Simulated assay, not measured.
Amino acid sequence: MPQRDTPGTGGTGGLRLRWWTELPLILVVYALYSAGRLLARGDVSTAVDHGVGILRVEKFLRLNAESPLNRLFTEHAWIGVPADFWYASLHYVVTPLILVWVFRSHAVQFRAARAWLMSSTLIGLVGFTLLPTCPPRLLSAGHGFVDTMAQYSDYGWWGGEASAPRGLGGMTNQYAAMPSLHVGWALWCGVMLWRHGRSPLAKVAAVGYPLITTIVVMGTANHYFLDAVAGAVVMGVGLLLVQPVLRLADRVKARVRLPLAVARPSAGVVAGSNAASVTGSPSASSVPESSIVSAECQTSTGERIPRPRERPAEPRAESSARSADAGDSAATASR
């Protein structure tokens, strides 16, 4: 079972985490994230301008890695098809599996890990809202990018609109490219595997999974290199916010529990207070019903056993003098 931890340490805050409370919380946050992406579609022309602007910045910094990778994925199906499956599925499979693994095997760290992932995801949603960005695959053909998801759509369940299943392209925001949460979530998974994995394979996966994901998002023309960098930055900011978020959550929980505890007193106390208000005297129900049994004697309910009074301690010298006087008096009387 999940372990207990002390508040403010990033653990369970002294509470036992239950999957039937954690799962709805994660699903609600993901539903809000998905709905927020749809609401933050923005203007298409603005998104295109942002995409072209990113390409110009990368060209100035000599960081344009998307074009050669995209040509490689386009010309070689044995690379492009697995990359499309990687992009379309692992983002939604590996992250939940890592969450479940941390919950079951490392519950003391789960609360902090969950807070990190959720905080970073919400920060990414802010980025989608403020900076709608056209991905490389949706730019005009003059920029030289090919949508590999559309090129190899016959191999998978997706169509020509990102990784959404055929006919459901309208349910996704194709201009939510900056930052890349594919890279951000993959980085989170890598950190969890590195910190908590024990086998060499886990260490290799911790490094390989985010690295390959970064290559895949660029090779499939779904993200720019700077999108990947922004995804890593978002995860860094989310990590810095973990402790403040946990402290805020603890304060909110404490304020919620206090009114509930006051509003739900025990049944015995309620019955006793009602009886006392009617008769003007304490009710028997407000007295503890337990009795004391000792040395074959039983007290009645509510009876108090008086304790013997304790004599004050006398100084040792005065006590010795009194003993001597008593001895002299006894000797005189015997004479």
Rank of each mutant, 00 (worst) to 15 (best):
R198Q: 12
Q151M: 13
A77W: 06
A113R: 11
V216W: 05
G142I: 08
S105E: 13
L130K: 02
T95W: 00
I215Q: 02
G272E: 08
Q298C: 09
A77L: 01
F128G: 06
A205L: 15
M171C: 11
K253S: 15
W194Y: 14
V44M: 04
M192C: 11
S199C: 03
T301R: 15
L25M: 11
V233N: 03
S153M: 12
A31K: 10
V216M: 05
G236A: 03
P7C: 00
T213M: 15
A31N: 10
A295L: 13
H50D: 07
G238E: 10
L258F: 03
D227K: 02
V256L: 12
P312M: 11
A263F: 00
G11C: 03
G197N: 00
A162P: 05
H143K: 06
H196I: 04
S286N: 03
P179S: 07
F145L: 02
P68V: 12
I305R: 11
G231Y: 00
V256Q: 12
A275Q: 14
S105I: 02
S199H: 05
S153T: 09
A107D: 13
A317T: 06
G160Q: 10
T172Y: 06
S281E: 14
V278S: 00
A321K: 04
A31M: 09
Q298W: 09
Q298L: 13
P68H: 12
A113L: 10
V81E: 04
D227E: 04
T133M: 02
K253R: 14
T9V: 01
T121I: 13
P136V: 01
V44R: 14
F73R: 02
G197L: 02
R104D: 00
K203Y: 02
L38M: 14
R16E: 03
W188M: 12
T148S: 13
L97H: 01
M1S: 11
A254L: 07
V204N: 01
S290I: 10
N70D: 08
G208F: 10
V126D: 01
P165N: 08
R198W: 02
G219A: 13
H106Y: 14
L193E: 02
N274E: 15
V207E: 07
G184K: 04
G156E: 04
H223D: 06
A164Q: 11
G268D: 13
S45V: 03
A254E: 12
P132T: 11
T220D: 00
R71D: 10
A333Q: 12
S119L: 08
S291I: 14
G236T: 04
S153Q: 15
P165Y: 12
L240P: 02
R41I: 11
S286W: 06
L138K: 08
R322D: 15
G13V: 01
A249N: 06
T46G: 04
S281C: 10
S34W: 09
V126T: 09
A313D: 07
F85L: 11
Q298K: 12
G51E: 04
G159H: 07
A186H: 03
V93A: 14
S34P: 00
L260V: 07
G280R: 07
V81C: 03
R304A: 11
S283E: 08
R111Q: 10
L226N: 10
G231Q: 06
P136F: 04
D5T: 08
M171F: 08
D43R: 01
P259R: 12
T214K: 06
V100A: 06
P132F: 09
G219E: 05
A295F: 13
D147R: 01
P312N: 09
